[in-house]
Amino acid sequence: MKSVVSRSIKDRGSDTLEVKKRLLQVARHLLSTEGREGASSRAICALAGVGAPTIYHYFGDLAGLHRAAIDETYEQVAEAYLQGAKERGPQQGLRNGWGAFNHFAHQEPLMCRIVIQQILAGEPPATVAETLRTVENDLSRLYDEGILNCPAHEAVQLLWIGTLGTVCFTSSKRNEQQERYPVLQEKMVDIVLDALFSIKD
């Protein structure tokens, strides 16, 4: 009897994770393709196959679900930095993270503009602050070694300004020039990293 009860609890936990995951996937899809207006409670619930109270149960309200979906989009950028830094150091991590953010902006411009709006409103994805702290800690070591040309906190601010600038450009309305975004992005990354670091990795 005890094993049956334990299995039942485990199954419910698995179902809970599946429902939350499905809600996040649907919310991300609708935010990316339809914007905030299209990602309404009704639309999300219809695609996810759940009732409206489910959103409130797992995320508090629609805004909470939107925030969770937006937070999730930035995780790929954070992972790109961490993986690059692990393999070849912070400079490669910066290059990878910057590239991942711009790729996201190019592939999902509408969702990227929502992320930028959150940042401008002082409500950035939860992983942004965590990632910036990690970058600053990594760069502090390079500054102590004489590789970084300015204090780590200044370098992080300069990098963030540059990243947001290229992302805004990439995610804005399409024109012929913007189709050249990979080339322009690489030039911007090279200019900024060359200015910040005394030697290349």
Rank of each mutant, 00 (worst) to 15 (best):
H66P: 04
A52W: 08
H66R: 01
E87Y: 07
E79S: 14
G93R: 07
G64P: 04
C45E: 03
L62V: 10
A80R: 04
V50L: 05
V77M: 09
A43L: 05
Q83L: 14
D61C: 02
F59C: 05
F59Q: 01
Y81L: 03
G64S: 00
Q92V: 15
A48F: 01
G49R: 00
A46V: 08
Q92C: 14
A80K: 10
P90D: 07
I44S: 07
L47A: 13
H57E: 09
T54P: 00
A52R: 15
G51T: 11
A69E: 01
Y74R: 04
R88P: 04
G64Q: 02
A63L: 09
L47M: 11
A80V: 08
G60R: 02
G84Y: 00
E87L: 11
L82P: 00
C45K: 02
A69D: 07
L65N: 01
V77N: 07
A80T: 11
A43N: 13
G93L: 08
I55F: 00
A63S: 13
L82H: 10
V77F: 09
I55L: 09
D61G: 06
V77C: 01
G51P: 00
G51R: 10
T73G: 02
A43Y: 03
A85V: 08
G89R: 05
Y81H: 09
L65I: 10
Y56D: 13
R42D: 08
Q92T: 15
C45G: 07
Q92A: 15
V77T: 11
T54D: 06
G64L: 05
D61L: 01
E75D: 13
G84D: 00
Y74Q: 07
A63E: 14
I70L: 15
P53H: 08
I44D: 02
Y81A: 03
Y58E: 05
A85E: 12
K86F: 09
Q83T: 15
A68K: 07
L47I: 02
T54G: 03
Q92M: 14
T73L: 14
A85N: 11
Y58S: 02
A48C: 06
G84P: 03
Y56S: 14
E75T: 15
L65Y: 05
Y74M: 10
L65C: 04
L62Q: 12
V50P: 03
V77W: 06
A69G: 05
A43S: 13
P53E: 04
L94E: 11
I55P: 00
E79F: 09
C45F: 03
R88K: 15
A80E: 08
T54W: 02
E79H: 12
A43C: 12
R67V: 13
T73K: 04
Y58R: 01
E79M: 11
C45D: 01
E75F: 12
D61F: 11
E87V: 13
H66W: 11
A69I: 07
A46L: 14
A78H: 04
D61I: 05
Y81N: 06
H57W: 12
E75A: 13
Q76H: 13
D61P: 05
E72N: 09
G93M: 05
A68N: 00
A69Y: 03
A63D: 15
H66A: 11
L47E: 15
G89A: 09
Q76S: 15
